[in-house]
Design a protein around this nucleic acid. Structure first.
Lengths: 129, 129
DNA sequence: GCTTGACTTTGAGTTAAGTCAAAGTGCTAT
DNA sequence: ATAGCACTTTGACTTAACTCAAAGTCAAGC
């Protein structure tokens, strides 16, 4: 699979994919004889993994380090696991905070809805914000 | 409450609070005779709200617009509600994606744990990454 | 009375993560 | 055979959201 197709598949610019490879978070993709990237299943999985993790807030730096360890082989399994555990914990905390904020939003929306109703009756006296 | 105390309370630089005010997402804080900001309860609530929303990914722009509407008075209630609903939906989606990624991480960590065990028995043959 | 923290304006610098442009080369599918 | 992707390197640019620096003033508390 060529870079343009991958780009469409994941809706991410080719330029970004090349940038990821250059930066070291996407391990070097196989090339055809004439030097064109030919993404295989494993590459696609890696791309998906990177995009998901980036989306969840993992930094380029962390992913770079993780992939460096992947490349380095079996000796690094524990280190890799530790990275993932750390990021998992961060993500869990982020989700918790998000949940809290989501509830805050829901509550506010609810208050606004009441205010709209009252307003329709020209009775509004709620302190909104 | 002076800006330095607020800064400590929320663990955010004074400079950022001033920046928020300047930018228009923190509505003008009352001043003492000599021009020093004196945060009251309402200001503190606003600061907390802003920080939470920023943390959840709402942009400065959106918060600015929202606060502009707050300032503009009761006529803008429906618009404000609409903003909050839109951001709520975005946040819900983000949380879902995060959950998915979290599960991915958990699964990977689990696989790594198995691999560590196998490795201890010098039997490792799992395809890890 | 001196240190500390508050204020102002203006403008520059920073960080992360892309994103684009130029310039030049080369394959491949219609 | 020509349009459309693909490649490279180098380097500049962008965006969001701060963050800091300078320069100068002012007020409060020990």
């Amino acid at each position: 699979m060529k870079i343009g197709e991958v780009s469409k598949l994941f809706d991410v610019p080719s330029e970004t994919l090349r940038y990821y490879e250059r930066a070291g978070l996407l391990l070097p993709v196989n090339r055809t004889e004439n030097g064109i990237r030919d993404f295989d299943e494993r590459d696609l999985h890696r791309v998906e993994f990177i995009l998901r993790m980036r989306n969840a807030g993992l930094s380029i730096e962390v992913l770079k380090e993780y992939m460096r360890l992947v490349e380095a082989g079996d000796e690094t399994i524990t280190q890799r696991k530790d990275i993932l555990i750390k990021e998992k914990e961060k993500l869990e905390q982020r989700i918790e905070e998000f949940q809290f904020t989501l509830n805050m939003l829901k509550y506010k929306i609810c208050v606004y809805e009441k205010a709209v109703l009252l307003k329709e009756k020209e009775l509004s006296e709620i302190d909104l914000e």
